[in-house]
Amino acid sequence: MALAAVAVAACLLPGTKAHAQGPAWPAKPVTIVVPFAAGGTTDVLARALGEKLGVALGQPVIVENRGGAGATIGADYVAKAPADGHTLLMGAVHHTIATSVYKKLGYDFQKSFAPITTVALVPNVLAVSAATPARDVKELVALVKAAPDKFSYGSNGAGTAQHLIGTQFATAIGQPLLHVPYKGSGPLTTDLLGGQVSMSFDTVTPVLPHIKAGKLRALAVTTARRSSALPDVPTLQESGFAGFDIGTWFGVLAPVRTPPEVVERLNAEMVKVIQSADFRKRMLDIGAEPVGNTPAQMAQQIASDTARFARLVADHRISAE
């Protein structure tokens, strides 16, 4: 009895291991919510990260697709999930745009989430079907102006980077383009290959295999510098369209009240994965540039992009319900 009492007392003493550790985390599988359909860049990155993260955490990491409404449905779900570190969001630059595009959101992207780390940066690319005769942007613009009713562009949904780039491009050429929103890059790429949409401004990752196979043609990247995955493809700026510098970053966030020690652990483990040689090679092979920054750096990035895209959204009068 005396020994038992001593043991209990020891557990209650400040600074003891039992007191300091608290409940074990993770206590169950961790879910990364991808706010798009399967097959796109967000999905690919989440699965690549989750595979190695699960080993580091000692718990399975499950990827769950909750697509729709320009990535806002999945974000809303995570924002309202228990803040215990077991439900995370694979967020993207799209969420900083949607903040200004959607009139009513059930969350505030800067206030409802705790940033963990940016996983990768991926350029966007203007791609058309190989059946389209245009060999460069100038030829594509001529075709569009000759038969504007025949051309459309697909995106991952209203308020995404693809939507914003497409709107900016239409303004630049002085010709409206029909916008066709999808729930993710998977279905968008399928329809682009089939000719249901004329072009896309998607990230490099989902279209790269089809470009290499000759089924799609890359005309220009939308970032200020060329993509290492498509070094021979010019930028839109090089093609005569000044002011284009939009790529897509992807990063992981948790509900805002997630314990700081859990966020710190997640950041440490994710950065180790992102900086590992095999993960880095895997990213470069799909046209992604691995990052792995701090929560504070990611928060600063979100704030900067939110302000930047609010101006572009206002300039182009983009809105969605």
Results as ranks from 00 to 15, higher is better:
residue 68 G to Q: 13
residue 151 F to R: 05
residue 51 E to P: 00
residue 51 E to W: 00
residue 100 S to A: 15
residue 58 G to H: 12
residue 48 A to G: 12
residue 139 E to P: 02
residue 158 A to T: 07
residue 107 Y to C: 05
residue 88 L to I: 12
residue 100 S to E: 11
residue 138 K to L: 04
residue 58 G to F: 10
residue 141 V to A: 12
residue 140 L to Q: 03
residue 86 H to P: 08
residue 89 L to E: 00
residue 96 T to V: 12
residue 95 H to W: 09
residue 143 L to F: 01
residue 111 K to I: 01
residue 148 P to F: 01
residue 54 G to M: 03
residue 87 T to Y: 00
residue 89 L to P: 02
residue 60 P to S: 10
residue 48 A to E: 07
residue 94 H to Q: 09
residue 141 V to E: 05
residue 50 G to V: 13
residue 132 T to C: 09
residue 141 V to D: 03
residue 60 P to Q: 09
residue 74 G to D: 08
residue 102 Y to T: 08
residue 120 A to R: 00
residue 49 L to W: 02
residue 90 M to V: 07
residue 66 R to T: 15
residue 135 R to T: 13
residue 157 G to I: 13
residue 78 V to G: 05
residue 123 P to L: 03
residue 92 A to T: 15
residue 99 T to P: 00
residue 96 T to H: 04
residue 140 L to W: 11
residue 150 K to D: 14
residue 132 T to Y: 00
residue 141 V to F: 03
residue 106 G to Y: 06
residue 140 L to H: 07
residue 91 G to C: 08
residue 109 F to Y: 14
residue 100 S to G: 12
residue 76 D to S: 14
residue 113 F to M: 03
residue 141 V to L: 11
residue 61 V to S: 12
residue 158 A to G: 05
residue 71 A to Y: 14
residue 128 V to D: 00
residue 107 Y to V: 06
residue 158 A to Q: 11
residue 87 T to M: 04
residue 155 S to M: 10
residue 53 L to Q: 09
residue 48 A to H: 07
residue 139 E to D: 10
residue 88 L to F: 04
residue 119 V to P: 00
residue 73 I to E: 06
residue 110 Q to C: 05
residue 149 D to N: 14
residue 87 T to D: 03
residue 66 R to A: 12
